[in-house]
Design a protein around this nucleic acid. Structure first.
Lengths: 226, 226
DNA sequence: ACCTGAACACCGTTCAAGT
DNA sequence: ACCTGAACACCGTTCAAGT
């Protein structure tokens, strides 16, 4: 799908060029399509050429993931802001960075602590959770939940297909053949289960669910802060 | 890792045998190790033999996922129970079914509506969300969040490694080399970030976060039910 | 009905060369 | 320093046979 050699044949290779082409490839044809050989092809180079810049595929994936975290436009820290609104803004910024790249978003899950941009994001999240009154242990755990949930949100990726898309119609049709007596709620929700009408609302509500959950937990057994 | 031919050499093949061996293989060596060729090897059979029972690998994966959903021990429906406690019980049961199989848990995300056991679980979840006062549309969306979050919980899989495991020690050490001025919260939480001390608590709090979030959302703009 | 064998177009990666 | 070429041990899958 990505036109061969879009990085320009004369371009010096270098890690950034490779990473960007890898991202484009994965965005276009999925993570499975991101292979060393196809990537090399599109860069107009031999597969082995990539092994000069990355010792193996995993290291390339690491670099790609770091690139992803680097895209997050961290909101400014406003003194006196509530922890929950600040945390919501942070997660929204994270979602915004991942949304263009649903195919590679899952990579972020296991690699936050593996690169500087990821660490910066994690540090900010942890700080806000601590502000909410959670212990270091709880914050670590909750931070993991948050990261995972946001990635899941983006990976599910409601958009990408119109309401009359082939796959969407097939799924809706399949659900509508179910027995309304046995699966009343699924049949009733066949439409929203097969297609998301409003992406922005989908993401907003997803983040809201998490913030609301944290607020609930924070209000419980946690000691109030000064 | 899995001993070759553990399904017995004389056993008739059949879909169930294949699925169970596939699950064992993925549990032992991860989803990547689950290949048609290795699976056939362990079943003492030619790769092509599997193509008689499944038209391709994806169909095998579908069957495996259905098997996973079938393991969920659905809690009894108690009339008069609160929606939130019922929903928590349901999610806990789901977690319990997935916990032994963290490597294949991600498969559940895209395949709930593709098999009968999955549909049953989804129907129950949707019903409880409707009870909470959410619309069909909202319930569909929230049901998706729930499913994804639970899968993420299991996939992160805190257990599996002791506190002095090689990988755990390496990660902790890496975090401890960070600047405490730049990453105070990460350094403080280096221990819980690299190792989860209590798995059961981890899962319980994860589910609780979600239920708490739903309770928060339900208590807001939603119409109260009779 | 159920399984085998050979073949095809793919993978990631190593190792020895080239310039 | 940066890239190529041939080779190795893997993939999923098709197609024609075997029993």
């Amino acid at each position: 799908m990505t036109s061969g050699g879009s990085a320009g044949r004369g371009t010096r290779l270098g890690r950034e060029v490779v990473v960007e082409q890898a991202l484009a490839l994965a965005d276009a044809d999925g993570l499975d399509a991101l292979t060393i050989r196809r990537l090399a092809d599109e860069l107009g180079v031999t597969p082995m050429a990539l092994y000069w810049h990355f010792s193996n595929k995993d290291e390339l994936i690491d670099a790609l993931t770091e690139h992803l975290f680097a895209q997050v436009a961290l909101p400014e820290v406003r003194a006196g802001a509530d922890w929950d609104t600040a945390l919501r803004e942070l997660q929204v910024a994270f979602v915004a960075a991942l949304r263009p790249h649903p195919a590679v978003a899952p990579l972020a899950r296991d690699r936050v602590l593996a690169s500087r941009p990821g660490l910066v994001l994690a540090e900010r999240s942890l700080g806000l959770l601590r502000e909410a009154g959670f212990t270091a242990e709880q914050s670590a755990e909750l931070g993991g939940y948050l990261l995972g949930a946001v990635v899941t949100l983006v990976t599910a990726e409601p958009g990408r297909a119109g309401p009359d898309d082939e796959a969407v119609r097939a799924r809706r049709a399949a659900l509508l053949t179910l027995s309304p007596r046995e699966f009343p709620n699924i049949v009733e929700a066949a439409e929203p289960l097969s297609y998301c009408a409003n992406d922005d609302a989908y993401y907003a509500r997803g983040v809201e669910l998490l913030i609301e959950g944290l607020r609930g937990l924070a209000g419980r057994g946690q000691p109030e802060r000064a």
